[in-house]
Design a protein around this nucleic acid. Structure first.
Lengths: 150, 150
DNA sequence: GTATATGCAAAACTTTTGCATCCTT
DNA sequence: AAGGATGCAAAAGTTTTGCATATAC
């Protein structure tokens, strides 16, 4: 998997085209799991012998977030994970056993949220809905277990 | 506002009744803002000249969480906040200007979530929905401002 | 009296910042 | 050439842990 990105995306976002930014964008684009921590990204850079510091990873991710290229999430472990913004808004469901993250959109939920926010008098800027549970998929370590109380 | 708690709650939760635990429970019960960080609680302890260490605050809060007495949330700033469990599940709406946190329940949203989880094959354990916006309340620093794009 | 809880200090971990150097434009 | 970006190291912020002492039961 080579570089999926030309500098266009970066230039369009008002950012200089530099190697660290290209590499990090490439990792975010090429990753099977779409939600990566700064450490995840840093490790992948090291694996490909890129000489990019962890501080730069954080700086670049923050710039990407400001530019609207990525979204920063805080799932319940507290550590930030970053996701490339492609397509439209969506919510998340996280497997407590394998850490898998899936995305979904439900217009009913979106609509009810608008109603609730209006009732409470808020002008909503964004929101985050995350469900946590057991995915029970065959390759999930929690799959074999009987459905226990926890 | 004196102690609201006897040792009962603690004993029922299987925890020894100690001064730090009573004080912290008392703070959680007596606070106007129901969502407090460990640091918030620690500061209030210092204000009342309680000689309780920050490490103990963290330990106690974690035990309370395990015992089901409190819930730990991660709003988008990343720092953990703790909330006393009283009444049933609810979701949150946070003001970006003043930090105010309000709670709500919408059965429509709950129901749609169950449908989505079933469709994706997950057994849900819990979920967190947080909306972020501007509350526009009179005492909010963001109140006077025209509704700008951000 | 025994087991558990606490305080303090130190460590661990995540994220940010200062500064000299390097790179993009 | 000039301004912004990077690497490294150090700092800052949050949370956890080790250990001797104190406390609950």
């Amino acid at each position: 998997m080579g570089l999926h990105v030309e500098g266009k995306d970066l230039r369009k976002a008002g950012l200089k085209v530099t190697l660290p930014r290209l590499k990090i964008l490439d990792i975010l684009e090429g990753s099977a799991t779409r939600h990566l921590s700064a450490e995840d990204i840093y490790r992948r850079l090291i694996d490909t012998r890129e000489d990019i510091g962890l501080a730069t990873v954080y700086r670049v991710l923050t710039q990407f977030e400001t530019a609207g290229l990525v979204t920063r999430h805080h799932f319940e472990d507290g550590m930030a994970v970053f996701e490339l913004n492609q397509g439209e808004h969506h919510d998340h469901i996280v497997c407590l056993d394998c850490g898998r993250v899936e995305e979904f959109v439900d217009e009913g939920i979106e609509e009810r949220q608008r109603v609730v926010a209006a009732r409470l008098g808020y002008e909503i800027r964004h929101h985050a809905l995350v469900m946590y549970g057991h995915c029970r998929k065959p390759d999930c370590p929690g799959a074999g277990k009987l459905r226990a109380d926890s």
